[in-house]
């Protein structure tokens, strides 16, 4: 699990009696999350389903998910890290200045109540969404949420889990992690992996113009990334693998149409709790899968001389 204080969704279904959703809107973005995994199901230690659970929603506005929540806490935008840090202090019984709480848009009573409820829970979960991890503070916010969950284990069982968006983004983390030791933003240019989000993450690399070729698999940055990043993709050699001809395909040198994952391409995808699922595609595509195309590109590269000094080349030069 990469050191995260986490568990499977099955454990949450059967055990969790206290749920916090922070910066996410599962009612609209993960519609079956409540009913299948977290809030509604009757589990082994939650035999009454919804009645056995308390749900807290922390968000900057009252979304559709607020209707499902017992407690809704409206936080000021960009103040998640401050609120999480104050909560960590309260949980540990340390004194927190009133002024430090006021700037988060919440009251001392609300945070004290939340901290008490967290400690009293039998099995608590913090699900954090992109409202936490993609706003001011970014991965430091995620780290604060996970640290809070980890520290709560001094009192009760508590876990934290990111609400992952795109289908198999969890799989990307897992696969890159078991190959390189790091989950994303890994630079292999020295022949060994180096990890540094902010330096080797895509948007930063593209905006600075560090790279001189890009291969994009099943993504459309041409429609979502900042303009300088798109300009850099258009001015360098870009290759796109996608089931559709996308915005990015139009500004790239090479586009290869591939089968759609899970619909016409078989394989494995990871659920947000890092459980691998087998795909059962109902259709057969006229296009090759991403796997086949990537393997053939790798084979074509392997036929060329290695870019790094191989033992054979070094011996030949002596």
């Amino acid at each position: 699990m990469g050191g995260k204080p986490s568990c499977t969704l099955g454990e949450i279904r059967n055990r969790a009696d206290f749920l916090i959703y922070w910066g996410g809107n599962p009612a609209e973005c993960h519609p079956r999350h409540f009913t299948k995994y977290s809030l509604m199901p009757k589990g082994k230690f939650t035999p009454n389903g919804r009645k056995d659970r308390t749900m807290v929603l922390v968000d900057i506005r009252e979304t559709a998910s607020a209707k499902a929540a017992d407690i809704f806490l409206q936080i000021r935008p960009g103040k998640d890290f401050e609120a999480l840090t104050a909560l960590r202090s309260i949980v540990k019984g340390k004194r927190v200045e009133e002024s430090a709480v006021v700037e988060t848009g919440l009251t001392m009573e609300q945070l004290n109540d939340l901290a008490t409820r967290m400690k009293k829970a039998k099995f608590g979960v913090i699900f954090f969404g992109m409202g936490l991890s993609m706003t001011r503070g970014k991965h430091m916010n995620s780290a604060a949420a996970m640290t809070l969950a980890a520290e709560l284990n001094a009192f009760t069982k508590f876990v934290a889990m990111p609400m992952r968006g795109h289908g198999n983004v969890t799989g990307a983390d897992v696969v890159v992690r078991y190959h390189t030791g790091y989950p994303f933003g890994v630079n292999l240019s020295r022949g060994y992996p180096r990890f540094n989000p902010g330096e080797f993450s895509t948007v930063d690399v593209l905006v600075r113009g560090d790279n001189d070729a890009t291969i994009i698999i099943g993504a459309d940055p041409g429609a979502t990334m900042p303009q300088p990043a798109i300009d850099h993709l258009a001015s360098t050699n870009t290759i796109v693998l996608d089931p559709k001809v996308t915005h990015t395909s139009r500004l790239s040198k090479v586009h290869i149409t591939t089968a759609a994952t899970g619909i016409s391409a078989p394989g494995t995808a990871y659920r947000m709790d890092e459980i691998p699922m087998t795909l059962r595609p109902p259709l057969k595509s006229p296009y090759p899968t991403d796997e086949e195309v990537l393997r053939r590109i790798s084979e074509a590269v392997a036929r060329k001389a290695a870019w790094y000094p191989t033992p054979e080349a070094l011996m030949a030069a002596v």
């Binding site: 968006g165 795109h166 291969i215 099943g218």
Partner: peptide, 9 residues
Amino acid sequence: LVYGLSNTT
């Protein structure tokens, strides 16, 4: 740069 990877197996 190899990027994307979430809508694939």
